[in-house]
Design a binder for these strands. Structure first.
Lengths: 136, 136
DNA sequence: AAAGTTTATGCAACTGAATTGCAAATTAAT
DNA sequence: ATTAATTTGCAATTCAGTTGCATAAACTTT
């Protein structure tokens, strides 16, 4: 089990205090969070720094982004082995009631047979409905 | 084959001049278009009116919206029979080169078996890659 | 360890999509 | 024709995402 610092360095991200803090917060989350969600976890913080931190993390494949249609892109940690290749991708779930977005990490994105001459790089699949919590 | 007017009235949308114009433009498109794309098809137009027109069309299930991650929501005509139920939904394709978004109307969204107590209402699935045009 | 170089952070400011309120205009109903 | 309801156009706002630039912090090289 890697510590925060190692997780950063193993993805070629320089482990600054800020980045460790952000990674720790992301690690605690049970759901994907947006930039402004993240911002609110700090008493005092600069949105732009957090923005760039997330960009860096995403670029280095430490986290992935999810477009759930809520207006704000959300972010969640990747698995340690993740390279964000098509085979690494999973389905996301957006709860229409609590508005939370979850990684369904165990559900791979089904492969699609595209029309002739179309090639695929990536897929964003978001199922919308009511989550287990809200369905009780 | 319904004319523009009938298409509107059959979806319970009052056929104003503006709406007929917008529907005609949408009908001509081979790909999904955003609000600002639509705005640019007019010499003089009001974005808000177009915005509300699209909202009305979507509400009445004449068109559907696609969140392709480009920053702007895109819209495309529904099939005549479409009720935007899960079984009516299809996969969308976003070309990373030309930035166009296509309806893969013949490719239904694969059904997913969700975790216990999760219920589904809707799914947004966008495959990203290079389209046939750009792959030549 | 000091000087220089690269990288990260913080602040101000901007862009563009989405949205609301309200008044004028158009359409439908009596 | 008058009234009522709906649609349209304009002004203005909100919020996510982004850029430029100056300062600060972290690495490099001597």
């Amino acid at each position: 089990m890697q510590n925060t610092d190692d997780k950063l360095t193993s993805r070629n991200i320089k482990p600054t205090a800020m980045r460790e803090l952000v990674l720790d917060i992301l690690t605690e989350q049970k759901m994907a969070i947006s930039l402004s969600d993240l911002e609110q976890k700090f008493h005092k913080s600069d949105k732009v720094t957090l923005y760039r931190t997330l960009k860096t993390f995403e670029e280095k494949k430490l986290i992935h982004s999810i477009n759930d249609g809520s207006g704000a892109v959300k972010y969640a940690l990747c698995k340690e082995s993740c390279q964000c290749h098509p085979e690494d991708l999973h389905v996301h779930f957006f709860c229409l009631k609590c508005q939370h977005t979850f990684c369904l990490s165990d559900i791979p994105i089904p492969s699609i047979s595209l029309p002739v001459n179309f090639s695929m790089e990536n897929t964003n699949m978001v199922v919308k409905g009511i989550c287990a919590n809200c369905n009780d």
